[in-house]
């Protein structure tokens, strides 16, 4: 892991403009990713973590979704300012993404080989015989057994875990520098999950790719990520190195999330906590701190004013009135 920052997101705002309302799904989010590093973005479903990922790819559902503010600086260029053509050159080649459900994210009517070689041809401009080699090496990188035979398989002929590896192979086929993995293991069985994560750690070692790992599961974070950003209702409430956040979470939401994960190093009589209540509707946010209605240590000010972001340690900042 170097100190070389490849992605810097600054004050990103993304909103959905629907007939009835404007939903500000991502509301001023900032973070960065280093080469060869994994940043976890953690939060409950609907907190804006997937929308953040799609914003980085500039693939928000059209025409309702739009980036309405902020910068996404990748390799010195602000992706928000690129036109469609320019942005496309980044997708798949420089930045790639793995979607959640392997059962639906491969095109059912084309073979695995076809779907991987498509990116290779597009971005690397290789002659046909070289393309196949590249495709096979991508399948090898994802440790897919007998890659030569898999080329002519259709997605439905593979298991879920194998399909997700194929999706990984597509993502890695053009040696991207940044990979956004949106809950890639959620749809998989527990044993296959662990394999998949080990696989990606290995791939990261080999390729030095920077990874943004979007998940709702702090257990996965502990395993995979160097740093974590915790999202709640469209905002990042706490960001810190993984080792720090598990030992000393500063935001009550982070603490609650960590408490809801079963851990081996805790005694049996420690109860797992769940967080009371529901996240707020993004169309109708409470004033003040967005977590206030569910917070167990809420104060008066929390309901009135949004807490500012405070730096509390090395690469560790929190937005909570309790910290001040």
């Amino acid at each position: 892991m170097s100190n070389n920052i490849i992605l810097q997101v600054e004050d990103l705002h993304t909103a959905f403009f629907t007939r009835k309302a404007v939903i500000r799904a991502v509301d001023g989010v900032s973070f960065f990713v280093r080469e060869g590093e994994t940043l976890g973005i953690v939060g409950e479903s609907g907190c804006g973590k997937t929308v953040t990922g799609l914003s980085l790819m500039r693939l928000l559902p059209e025409p309702s979704g739009r980036i309405i503010g902020g910068k996404i600086i990748f390799d010195g260029r602000n992706l928000v300012e690129l036109d469609k053509q320019q942005m496309r050159a980044y997708r798949g080649k420089m930045i790639s993404m793995i979607l959640q459900d392997p059962m639906t994210s491969l095109n059912p009517v084309y073979t695995i080989g076809d779907q991987i070689s498509e990116s290779v041809k597009l971005h690397q401009g290789l002659p046909d015989d070289m393309v196949e080699k590249e495709v096979i090496s991508a399948l090898r990188l994802l440790k897919i057994p007998a890659p030569e035979q898999r080329l002519n398989d259709y997605p439905f002929q593979l298991s879920g875990g194998m399909r997700q590896r194929v999706v990984g192979a597509i993502a890695m086929s053009c040696h991207p520098r940044l990979l956004i993995a949106d809950e890639p293991t959620t749809a998989l069985d527990a044993t296959i999950q662990a394999q998949y994560i080990a696989l990606f750690k290995d791939i990261q070692q080999k390729t030095n790719v920077g990874i943004i790992f979007i998940t709702h599961d702090f257990g996965v974070v502990a395993n995979m990520c160097q740093r974590v950003a915790v999202m709640y209702a469209g905002k990042i409430v706490e960001t810190a190195p993984t080792s720090v956040i598990f030992k000393a979470p500063r935001h009550p939401y982070t603490a609650a999330l960590i408490n809801s994960v079963p851990r081996l190093d805790r005694s049996k009589d420690d109860r797992l906590d769940s967080i009371e209540g529901q996240p707020p509707s993004m169309a109708n946010l409470p004033p003040g701190c967005r977590f206030a209605p569910r917070c167990t240590v809420v104060q008066d000010i929390c309901r009135k004013q949004e807490p500012p972001e405070v730096k509390v340690g090395d690469e560790h900042s929190v937005s909570c009135w309790r910290v001040n």
Partner: peptide
């Protein structure tokens, strides 16, 4: 569908 999203993630032109 998700596979269309994936096709776009690959950077394929809209035409394809």
């Amino acid at each position: 569908s998700e596979y269309i999203k994936l096709a776009r993630i690959k950077g394929l032109p809209e035409r394809v």
